[in-house]
């Protein structure tokens, strides 16, 4: 009798610890639906400007800078030259710089690219699924992704050449 009581007690307390612990744990460590610094980036599959469909996971092993932009956004235009020169500087050193356009027509993106004189890879987020997955709110937003696929840093708003340089150097560990 006494022994059975003890077993019942332990079983119930164990249940409470597991269920209660998971509830409290969920409150303490809220699992973010959008990537934050340190979390793994969602995989996205988009068409490259004038090209084939690309996925983010193909770039694993390389540091990636993802810049979300739109043609109507002034700071996006201002930061384009900095992105382009960073691209030129790092493209053969294990760093990819990719622009992700927020749902505009290919024509508009093409015009924009030639007007700005940039030629780093542009991905077209036609259905805005990638932007949603990354939880993009203001444009531009730049994600720095480590070679292991985890977010190194997030820059909301215009990114400067210095910031690009610092973060990229941190990511490739030089």
């Amino acid at each position: 009798m006494g022994k059975r009581n003890k077993v019942v007690q332990i079983v119930i307390l164990a249940f409470i610890v597991v269920l209660g612990g998971s509830a409290i744990g969920a409150a303490l460590f809220k699992s973010e639906e959008v990537p934050v610094v340190g979390s793994r980036v969602p995989d996205i599959k988009l068409q490259q400007l004038n090209g084939e469909v690309r996925t983010l996971s193909d770039l694993k092993g390389k540091a990636v800078v993802l810049n979300f932009w739109g043609s109507w956004c002034e700071p996006c235009k201002r930061e384009m030259p900095a992105l382009q020169s960073a691209y030129d500087q790092w493209k053969n050193k294990g760093v990819d710089i990719i622009g992700v356009n927020y749902g505009e027509d290919e024509l508009v993106v093409n015009n924009f690219v030639s007007q700005m004189g940039v030629h780093f890879p542009m991905w077209l987020d036609r259905k805005k699924t990638a932007s949603k997955a990354f939880g993009i709110r203001p444009l531009p937003t730049t994600f720095f992704v480590n070679p292991d696929g985890k977010v190194h840093a997030i820059k909301l708003g215009e990114v400067t050449a210095e910031e690009l340089d610092t973060y990229i150097k941190q990511m490739i560990g030089s």
């Binding site: 119930i12 409470i16 269920l19 209660g20 509830a23 409290i24 409150a27 303490l28 809220k30």
Partner: peptide, 22 residues
């Protein structure tokens, strides 16, 4: 109402419900 301490209180009330009744 999403904070850890509030959830903890609810968990404790739940435990109390189970154990008091049993």
């Amino acid at each position: 109402y999403e904070s850890w301490w509030f959830i903890t209180l609810l968990v404790m009330i739940g435990s109390s419900l189970v154990i008091c009744s049993l």
